[in-house]
Computed example of a mutant assay.
Amino acid sequence: MTLTIATLLPSLQNTNGDAENAAVLAQRATWAGLDARVVAVESRDDLPDHVDAVVIGSGTDAALEAARTRLLELHDELRRWGTEGVPILAVGTGWELLSWGIELPDGTNIEGLGILPGRAVPHREGRITGDLVVAERGSRELLVGFENHARAYVGAEGSPLGRVRSGQGNAQGSGQEGVVMGEVIGTHLHGPVLAKNPVLADRMLRAMAERAGLDYSPGEQTLVVDGYADDARRAHLAAAGVDTESVVASSVVAPSSANEA
């Protein structure tokens, strides 16, 4: 069986390389001895017969309307995938488009697809950029990445991805980052996040494999690459002034699942 990872609208939603999270999943699956492929889905016509995971990257505000129009064609599939437990990772504006809606500075609103709770509203303090460190909810894992967003995310305080250790996250002073509903994750973490945080990638892969009746265990090459990721993470944490002793090595599986995040 071939695991299929769909990356949605990569021509519009890949400003920070976040669409490449799909390639991270596929490569790690291959290193584990599993067959995997990435399918770029620009419209409904590109949909494969079966999907095991979905990635939606971040795009520019100029592309919001076009991206929303195309995602609306996939609304029924996105809702079904979320209900069935298909892992979905949405980053930046890709996440905002799955929310209740996006409020723009001129007061106009873009209606979201309503897959995830909450909505995006303009930051009073302006654009937030910088390193972001998050203590994942339900585990000791610290997630790292770069945040670059002009909007706060409100209305989903009960289901964050984690607590902010350095940076701003969903809103200045909120102390929270991201949102999780079942196997659907929304986050501001750019990087791509799965390359910088292999534990999160492996958690998605285990969920994919379990649904497909397969076993997933990181391959030998994966452990080599994860050593490089750990070095990069430790440098990131040191630069952010976060205690590196609290880091869980990316080659060790954290005890929680995405459902517990």
Rank of each mutant, 00 (worst) to 15 (best):
L74G: 02
G17F: 07
L25M: 07
R28T: 09
T69R: 13
S58T: 07
V41M: 04
E42I: 06
A53H: 13
L64R: 06
E65Y: 01
Q27P: 03
D46P: 02
G57M: 04
N16S: 14
A63K: 01
V38T: 15
T60N: 10
D46I: 00
E73N: 07
N21F: 11
N21D: 08
H50E: 00
E20I: 02
R68Y: 05
N14H: 11
S58H: 01
T60P: 02
L9Y: 05
L12A: 07
V54F: 12
L72V: 13
N21H: 10
A32E: 01
H50D: 00
L72P: 00
N16D: 14
G57S: 09
A53S: 13
T15Q: 11
L71Q: 02
L34R: 15
A23Y: 06
R37F: 00
V24F: 09
E73K: 14
T30S: 15
E20M: 08
A29G: 10
N14S: 15
G33M: 11
L64H: 06
V54K: 15
T7R: 15
L8W: 01
A40E: 11
V41L: 05
V38D: 11
L74K: 12
N21Y: 09
G33H: 13
V24P: 11
L64I: 13
Q27Y: 10
V54G: 12
E65A: 10
E42A: 05
A26K: 06
L34Y: 08
A22S: 02
N21S: 10
Q13A: 10
D45K: 14
G59N: 12
V54L: 14
T15Y: 06
D45S: 14
A62I: 00
L34P: 14
V39W: 12
A66Y: 05
P48H: 01
A40Q: 13
S58E: 00
N16W: 12
D49A: 14
Q13I: 05
W31D: 11
P10N: 03
A63M: 01
V41C: 05
E65W: 00
R37G: 08
E65L: 06
E42P: 09
D35R: 15
L12T: 08
D61S: 08
A40Y: 03
D46E: 00
A67C: 14
V55Q: 03
D45E: 13
L12E: 03
S11A: 14
T60E: 05
A22C: 03
A26C: 09
V39F: 11
V54N: 13
A23C: 07
Q27R: 15
G59L: 12
V38K: 08
R68G: 03
L9P: 02
V39R: 08
V24I: 14
V39G: 06
T30E: 14
A36F: 03
A23S: 13
A63E: 04
V55W: 04
W31I: 07
L8E: 00
L72Q: 10
V51T: 14
A22G: 05
L47C: 08
G33L: 11
A53Y: 11
D52P: 03
W31F: 15
A26Y: 02
D35K: 15
L71T: 03
G57W: 02
L47A: 08
V54R: 15
D49K: 14
D46F: 00
G17V: 05
L64A: 09
D46G: 02
D18T: 11
